[in-house]
Design a protein around this nucleic acid. Structure first.
Ligand code: SF4
Ligand code: SF4
Lengths: 131, 131
DNA sequence: TTTAATTACTATATTAAAGTAGAAATTACA
DNA sequence: TGTAATTTCTACTTTAATATAGTAATTAAA
C-alpha cells in the first residue's frame, strides 16, 4: 500500500476541515461524517493538533479547526506525521550501507518510483482535494 | 512501503536461485545465505513452489531450484503471489464505487504513481538483479 | 458554582503480518 | 530396511497497527 489507514484518515480529516474553514467541528462530528472510529480519531486529532495543522479547543462547544490555508498543507506534511518507516526501504534492507557507487541494479528504479510518489505527495495540497 | 517483508524475502530467494541455476539448494542454506528466518522461509518456499516459480525436491539431498529462465520471471510475478490488497486502494477506500466519471481529484495522480511502480515491477526481471 | 460537552491521556483489546515449534511425509543412500 | 536430511503441514507465539474503554482536564453556559 502507498499510505496506511491512519494516514488516509488524517488526510480526509484535513479535507473536511478545509471545507468547513473557520468553523469548529467536534471529533464526534468528524467521526460520524467520515465514518472513522471515534476513539481512534481523537488520537489522530491530538497528533494533528500537536503538529499544528489543526487548532484544538477544549471544553464545551470545543472542537477542531484547520490551522493553515488549505493551499499551504501538502499531503506529505500529513503523511509524514504518521509515518515511521525508513525512507530508504527496499528489498535489500534500509539502504544504510549503499551509496551511488555501491548501489544495486534496482536502485534507480526504486528511486524513480519513490520520487514519483513523493512528488505527487509534495505537489498536492489539501486545497486540491476540496475543489 | 512499496513491498512488504515477505515479498522482499521472495525476490531475494529467486535472485539467489537464479545465481545457482540448475543446482539444488536447501531451505537451510537459503536461510543462512540470505539471513531469513528458517521456519518462515520454508513457508515462503512452499508458496513459490505451488506457484511454479521454483521446483522443489523432497527428502534427503532435496531442495529448491529455479523453475524458469531468470529473464522470464518478472518482479511482479513474485510480488503478486504474496499480495492481498485490493489493487485500487486509496485514501477514500477501495475504489469499488469509482469510475472515470465519478473519480475524485486525486485519482489520476494515484494512477500515475501506481503505474510507475507497476511498470517498474513488470519490466524488471530476476535476470536484471543477477547481473 | 454546577453541569454537560468536549479534548487529552493512559491502558487495554483486537487484528494482521511476521516469526517459531513440532511433527508428518518423502527420499537418497548406507 | 533403517536412518538422516529434507520438504510440507498444522498449530502456536510475537509484534505492530488499528481499535476500544475509562477517566482526567478543560471550558461554555445555565
Ligand atoms: S542500492 Fe539497492 S540495496 Fe541500496 S538502497 Fe538502493 S535499491 Fe536498496
Ligand atoms: S476516484 Fe478517487 S476515491 Fe475513487 S479510486 Fe480513484 S482515487 Fe480512489
Amino acid at each position: 500500500m502507498i499510505i496506511n489507514k491512519t494516514q488516509s484518515y488524517a488526510i480526509r480529516v484535513l479535507e473536511l476541515l478545509a471545507q468547513k474553514k473557520d468553523i469548529l467541528i467536534s471529533a464526534k462530528k468528524i467521526s460520524q461524517n467520515l465514518d472513522i472510529p471515534y476513539k481512534y480519531l481523537t488520537r489522530v486529532m491530538t497528533k494533528l493538533s500537536e503538529s499544528q495543522l489543526v487548532n484544538s479547543y477544549r471544553g464545551k462547544d470545543g472542537g477542531f479547526m484547520i490551522a493553515k490555508e488549505p493551499s499551504e498543507i501538502k499531503l506529505k506534511d500529513i503523511i509524514d506525521i504518521f509515518s515511521n518507516e525508513s525512507p530508504h526501504q527496499c528489498i535489500y534492507g534500509d539502504g544504510s550501507i549503499c551509496s551511488q557507487k555501491t548501489k544495486c541494479t534496482l536502485h534507480d528504479k526504486w528511486q524513480n518510483s519513490k520520487e514519483s510518489i513523493n512528488e505527487s505527495f509534495l505537489n498536492t495540497t489539501i486545497q486540491e482535494l476540496v475543489k
